[in-house]
Amino acid sequence: MLNLQSLSKTYADGTRALAGIDLAVPNAEIVALIGGSGCGKTTLLRLIAGLDRPSAGSIALDGEPITGPHPGVGLVFQESRLLPWLDVAGNVGFGIGDLPRRERAERVAHALERVGLAEHAGRWPRELSGGQQQRVSIARAFVANPRVLLLDEPFSALDAFTRKDLHRHLLALWEEVRPTVLIVTHDVAEAVALADRAIVMRPKPGRLDESIALDLRRPRDPAAPTSEAATRKILGALDRSLRPREASRAPELAGGSSF
């Protein structure tokens, strides 16, 4: 269980990026965080990843507080952030350097197999397409067997075909390692394709607004009526999140909410 308790982040310049986030994510759940820019999605992931410290509140993974980068927490950035001086295999194995050479090589080979890049192990990152680079980046995160995987709009720079392909690879790896996943996206279709739950965020300061359960079976068909209904629900919640809070507040959610 990943637990966030009244998590807040105020930057030095006074910007309130996040205010009072309460969230509990059961193990192996996939949560999509949706919202416009400036609602603190990236800040939230950076706090959980331990790259930034919260101004208030706490984060715990299975009861253990997280106060910095944690071996059980992986992060895939919006840009692939591969190290240009390492080949593909070197990048995938970057985070497991303390494992014995043999085991590292096996895990790297396996992860590359899973993302369909086995034959590219010896290439330089610059020789890969954007989608392939992001697959390497996902493999790099998975190879460390994270308990929590954070993805910060990892597919936003890719075309629709590549994105669908990457969803498939991501789900295949998730089936195998079954980490808890928090994926930030601004693409409702992506949330419907991947997540067990979509949480709509609202800006100034960043808060969690509405949570929509997506009880859909995998593999998912985006054209199925259930997917369409889920898409409509998320779009409705997004729409409400853009209106002033008091007016839009659904009665059953009034008075503070906890997810």
Partner: peptide, 16 residues
């Protein structure tokens, strides 16, 4: 700085 963050995510020591 973005590449340095990759190192931080994987908890590299200062020397590493």
């Amino acid at each position: 700085r973005k590449l340095i963050e990759v190192g931080r995510i994987f908890r590299l020591s200062k020397l590493a």
